[in-house]
Design a protein around this nucleic acid. Structure first.
Lengths: 109, 109
DNA sequence: TCCCATTATTGCAATATTACGATGGATGGG
DNA sequence: CCCATCCATCGTAATATTGCAATAATGGGA
């Protein structure tokens, strides 16, 4: 065992979960926040900014790229990462929908 | 290794991440959606609803309880779970703030 | 009291994640 | 061409997660 049974869930549920999972690590939250805050997009400054090894940062960047929320373009000898506006918006909407479904009615139990 | 270095991140980053992580599994997304959809709050019907073993559901419920997003009250021999309105609202705000920081300016790279 | 239904917990196996050092590939400067 | 820099990937160790069967623990009814 130890293998998530994604077959039994809907596509939406799996997508929402993978998004959440991608953001479910403080380093990746920090990376996103850094990319958002920076006017220009950042490259390997992230390694200095956060206190993690280069290999670790690279791995986190890869996971964020996998869910599409960031994109990287080669810039000479370094790589420039930034938020993908389309995917960001799509995700923002999904979160909003998810949270909007519940309207905080009175506490039931 | 293999141990998240939470010390090097801010309290907000860690909290946001733990929230996201809690929702970072399709079963837990499904549980939340079921609780939200149901007028009354659901108990162990979740075990039938989702196709997972009782022990597994119980474990997921525990994780959701740990981040405070749901609460369970004993109802005779069964337990009634439901969304915690306060925590839900708090989380909704945190997400909104997180996503609001980026305003989808033109693609930079 | 003795069972039954409902949850929680425990124990275990399989898989996934996290972190890092080391290595490798690409680019730019000399 | 060589070297340094930047980044990705590999390999590895430690830890975490996922899922289930089996086993408690609790409360309600007979």
């Amino acid at each position: 065992m130890g293998l998530t049974k994604s077959e039994i869930f809907s596509k939406e549920q799996n997508k929402l979960a993978s998004m959440m999972k991608a953001l479910g690590h403080p380093a990746r939250i920090a990376i996103i926040q850094t990319l958002v805050k920076a006017q220009a997009c950042i490259c390997g400054d992230l390694v200095e900014e956060l206190g993690l090894a280069q290999a670790t940062i690279s791995q986190h960047l890869k996971e964020l790229k996998n869910v599409g929320i960031i994109q990287g373009t080669i810039e000479g000898t370094s790589v420039c990462y930034c938020i993908d506006p389309k995917v960001w918006e799509q995700y923002r909407m999904m979160f909003e929908t998810f949270f909007g479904k519940y309207s905080g009615r009175e506490n039931c139990c």
